[in-house]
Amino acid sequence: MTKNKQIQDKAKRLSLKILGLGAAVGAGALASDSTGYPATNPEKEWGEHFQSHYTKMSPEEVKEAVARLERRYKSQYDKEIKVATTPPKEHVLFGYALNITRCKGYRECVKACTEVNNQDKNPNMEYIRVLELDRGTFNLEEASHYYSAEKEVPAPGKFYLPIQCHQCENPPCVATCPVEATWKEPDGIVVVDYNWCIGCRMCMNACPYWARRFNWRNPNLPKDKINPDTHYLSNRPREKGVMEKCTFCLQRTRKGEMPACQAACPTGARVFGNLLDPKSEIRWVLENKTVFRLKEDLNTQPKFWYFSD
């Protein structure tokens, strides 16, 4: 009898404990409270989850991966999106020079960039930040990043300094990536494999030019704003939780076109070209104008120069 009671007691205590644990878990779930953002996760084929690193895949595997992506984009955006894998050109090293005397702060480059690179829209993610500085100073901390679109530029007494990825020859972002999801291509462009990035944001900490952007959510990319001409390493649509950055419009430049920011610049402040070609314009600028690079003291060796008239 007493033994029975003991067992009963034990069972009662046990069930109480289980009940209590269940209640605690349930209460926790209730207290977790959901936030107002929508979760817009695309349907993905299994193969995409187990896809290898871009540089580790065989040409056939890359083809498969591209086909898989194009299928997903088709169903996700209801639009044919072409994902190219154009390799870098031989004997080409891209470089950029920007004339800060010519730059008038119109932000046309910023706009053109967002139109071709399929970034998150509304609010727009932008790769280029145009800084408005007082003439006579060069302290970035005194710069205005958000100068009004309602007031005419150039404002009296101001000059403008656009900053984007400098495609460093010694990129600290590449050194710091734990899974080699970002690397420097032979044509000098630092790229990201959006299917390999784990989203730890180490590269973001390392970049001295604040050139990297993170997808805090699944990008809001309306069908009519998609540029269907994409490259695997550049402007193909991204997902939440991965890093992205300016690639000097790799999808255009590897075909011989100019980057969108150069094409859009109304003042001709931007000079783009092949650093290995002694006859190129960029080489003439480097050899004949007084140029400087931002934060050269950090030994990042940017391939983005500034010059003035």
Partner: peptide, 25 residues
């Protein structure tokens, strides 16, 4: 233990939200 399980469970379910929606949360 119940108190800690409650907190852990709250954390877990909140994290599921973050997983689903991204770090925009």
């Amino acid at each position: 233990i119940f108190f800690l399980v409650f907190l852990a469970s709250m954390g877990l379910f909140t994290y599921i939200e973050q997983w689903r929606k991204g770090m925009v949360t």
